[in-house]
Structures are given as structure tokens and as C-alpha cells.
Design a binder for these strands. Structure first.
Lengths: 250, 250
DNA sequence: AACTAGTTCAAACGTTCGTTTAAATACTAG
DNA sequence: CTAGTATTTAAACGAACGTTTGAACTAGTT
């Protein structure tokens, strides 16, 4: 029977610490020694429990992404059931995809903002094994949402939708990674998007909500923007946000 | 009397190779030994000419960013002179900021897409010295453009503009980095945004133009999106891009 | 008590890292 | 040509890396 007793303790403690340290210093910038020291376990524990450093990173993500993927697919299922065959609204799709993620930032038991920041940062890491890991892990979800967007925007060329999905992922992952130049330059006007060490759960939760509130309208505006006039690159669109309709040329 | 003639040859060759390798494998993932081997110079050459690996990365960026910063400031100067005191249009500002950058992707003598990808990737690197380097390097330009956007969108709260500038930088840097999950999942439908080794100059140039054409409308749409209804997170905005005016509540 | 399987531990493994050294070579000025 | 500076070279440095080892410890079973 034998639930190995401390096994779970050690494993979880390693995962928690690795999640935070990978978030703060990146994969290559975090050594096994600082991980095991911070987790107060032996140096060999990572290799014993996970096999390798690469496998540890994958385990860190698997612990969270399984739930996230299920949640995202289920959110889409619910929406499509409600719609009864009709195409969904773009805002519903974005809310299901990005809202589900951003709500993880408010839930400390799902990793909170620590995991969100790690995810955002890791999505841009160049290491090959990371890219293929994410590709496999995300394939089904991305595909479902891509198709939902195709149905929601039947008049927009599919290539254009894929591009914009691309841009939206970038805006999101950069925003949640929260380690950028702008914040340094502007002096943290956004309300401490970084906060490497404070890790106040209440503050993080508030940050996640604020981020969601700002990001979703931006993404929706970008997704629904008029298509570029492919022939003439110069613009003729209305300018002020307060001012007019989007050009209905899409 | 064979190839190694003078210091300029060595320095430039190191910079060229480092630019490409840092782009492909990241800063921490690229060793001095592979750099010097690929550049066909002695291992000690980097430390002799640049002082350290960190200083090399900074030199790689300084070689390009000086020109880019000047170009961006000048573009804004021209626009403001033409406007004669009147606020600029958001599309003009975005064109000056992002268009200037994306045009570097078409210009091989300015680093082309290699430099753009490196820039996008490096903007999300966690190393401290990189962040402070960029903060110093970008401070003046970001500040000028921030103020221009404040003037262009007087009815939008400044904090909101900063957030959206943030999101736009993210969408751009992710898009030009071009190493993401979506492309793997969708099977390069976007037309080979990555191309680690092909490095076809003509293809890169075409890619830069295509990217610009897709990205700019997205950014403009996001920037000009209606503000979120801060009280009620649920939406009441028109959905299809082809369909209606933006809510003029901003 | 002895056996077994799971886990922890200190120590060491072989590599690779960025950097430094000091001699050798190339170049330039007087 | 010579003196002197600038650059290149091969070799080595110590530190840090991820991983492996084999013994010690823990607990449940017989």
C-alpha cells in the first residue's frame, strides 16, 4: 500500500521552488543547486524524483497545464452548447481562452501569478525541448480555439486570424511575464507588474484582475481591427478611439 | 597577410556571429567558444575587444539601437513639425515607432530580421544587466512616444495608454521573435516566421513587410479599443470586425 | 529479527563555462 | 631598420554546471 510518505512532500516542495526560481531567473539561469538548497532537499533529489533538469521543468508545467487545458476545452464546450450550433462571439472565445488563464493568476492553489509569469517567460525561451513540449501540450486546445475563431469570423481570411491569434498570445505572454523595459522606464506606473520577491497573494490576485480588465479590451480591439488595405499600405482609417466606427472592410 | 587584417575585421565578424547565435540560442545558451569558433577568431578575442560576454551582448545591441533610436526620434520630429502643434494621429505615432523598427527587418545592413528576432527574444530575458541596459537605451525614446500618445488620446487615461503601449510592445516582440508554440501547432501557416538557418535575405525582407502589414492594424485596433466598463466586466460591445462602430466611451 | 523497497545523503564524477596569462606575431611610426 | 604598440595565439585557470554513485537511513512486511 505504502503511499511513500515524504515522497510527496519532497516532490511538491521541489516543484514549488522550481516554479518560482525558473520564473525569476529563467531556465538556464537557475541551477539545480539553488533549487535544491532553497527547497531544503538534497542535490540528488531532483534527479531521483524527476530524472533530469529538463524533466523537472516539464513536470512544473504539467502540474498546471493539465488543469488549464481541461478548463479551456470545457469553457468552449459550454459556450458551444449554449449557442446550439451558432457561431460564438469573438469576445466569448477570448474570454474563454484568456480569461481562464488570467483567472489562474488569482488562484494561489493553481500557481497564481508566479505560474503565469513563468508561463509568459518560458513561451519565449529558445531551448528546443521547451518549444516541442509546449507544442505537444497545447496542440489540441489551440486547434479547437482556432476553429472556433474561424467560425466566429467567417469573413476574415483564416491566415489573418492565425496572425492575430499570434499577436494576442504575444501581448498576453509579454504582459504576464511582466519583465520589460517599459515598466522600468515608466517607473512601475502600472502598479508593480513585476514584484519578484514580494509575492503578496492578495496583491497578486488584484493584479491579475486588473491585468485581465486591461488586456481583454485590447485583444478584442486588435482581433476585430479592420483588415489592412493590402494594396495601399498608407492609412485612411478613423483615428481617435472615441470617434468612429471601424472600417467595415473585413 | 591572409584574412585577419585588422581589428575592425575581427570585431565586426564577432558582432555578426554573436548577433546570429544569440538570436538562435539565447544569451545563456550561447557560449563564447561557439561564438569564437564560428567567427573563426581566437577564444580570447571577445574579452580582448569587448571585455566580457555581457559587454559583447551590449555591443551587439549598441551597434543597431543607436541608429534605431535616432530614426525613431527623427520620425517623431518630422511628424510634429508637419502637424504644427496639433496632436498627432495614433496611426502616425504607431507607424513611426513600429514601422521604423519593422523596416530594419528589410534592411540587411541594419541587421535585418536576425536583429529583429534577437531584439524580440532579448526583451523577455530575465538577466538583470540586460533589463537595465535596455531601460537606459530606450528611456528617451519611450518617453517621447508616451507623451505623443498622451497628446494624441487626451480623453484616454494615461495609465490606460501605458498599459496598451505595454501590450503593443508585447505583441510586437513576440511576433518578431517568432519562436512560439502557435507556429509549431499551426504548421508554419504564417509563412515561415522562424527560419533559423535559411536566412534568405529576400525572404526575410518579404517577411518583414508582411509582418508589418499584419501587425500595424492589430496594434491600432488594440490601442483604440473602447475602454473596459470598469464596473461591469461583462461585455456589451459589437462583435464582428465588419460590423459596427467602436463604442465611443473612451 | 531479518528482509525489502523507497528515499535521503555526502561526495565525487567529468564537462563546460567565462576569463586570464604570457609568449608570439602583425602592424605602424620615427 | 628599429622600437613600440596592437593584436592574435595556445594553454591554463578556478568555478560552476548537471549528473551519478554507493552507502546510510526509514518504514512496512514477514
Amino acid at each position: 500500500m505504502s503511499e511513500p510518505k515524504n515522497n510527496h512532500d519532497t516532490r511538491e516542495r521541489i516543484l514549488d521552488v522550481a516554479e518560482r526560481l525558473f520564473m525569476e531567473h529563467g531556465y538556464e539561469g537557475t541551477s539545480m543547486r539553488v533549487i535544491t538548497t532553497a527547497a531544503e532537499v538534497n542535490l540528488a533529489a531532483v534527479n531521483y524524483h524527476f530524472g533530469s533538469k529538463e524533466a523537472l521543468l516539464c513536470a512544473v508545467f504539467r502540474r498546471r497545464l493539465g488543469w488549464l487545458n481541461r478548463e479551456r476545452l470545457q469553457a468552449l464546450d459550454v459556450l458551444e452548447a449554449q449557442a446550439g450550433g451558432a457561431p460564438l462571439k469573438p469576445s466569448q472565445i477570448l474570454e474563454a481562452f484568456f480569461g481562464t488563464l488570467l483567472r489562474m493568476g488569482e488562484d494561489e492553489s493553481r500557481g497564481g501569478m508566479t505560474f503565469l509569469r513563468l508561463l509568459g517567460r518560458t513561451l519565449t525561451e529558445p531551448a528546443e525541448f521547451i518549444r516541442t513540449f509546449f507544442a505537444n501540450e497545447y496542440a489540441e486546445v489551440i486547434d479547437r480555439y482556432k476553429l472556433a475563431l474561424f467560425r466566429a469570423l467567417p469573413d476574415v481570411p483564416k491566415a489573418e486570424i492565425v496572425w492575430r491569434l499570434h499577436f494576442m498570445l504575444g501581448a498576453m505572454s509579454y504582459a504576464i511575464a511582466g519583465t520589460d523595459v517599459l515598466r522600468v522606464v515608466t517607473g512601475c506606473e502600472l502598479g508593480d507588474l513585476a514584484g519578484e520577491q514580494n509575492a503578496d497573494a492578495a496583491g497578486d490576485s488584484a493584479l491579475a484582475r486588473r491585468l485581465s480588465q486591461r488586456l481583454m479590451p485590447f485583444l478584442l480591439g486588435g482581433l476585430r481591427a479592420p483588415l489592412s488595405n493590402l494594396a495601399a499600405p498608407s492609412a485612411a482609417a478613423p483615428e481617435s478611439p472615441g470617434e468612429g466606427g471601424q472600417k467595415p472592410e473585413v
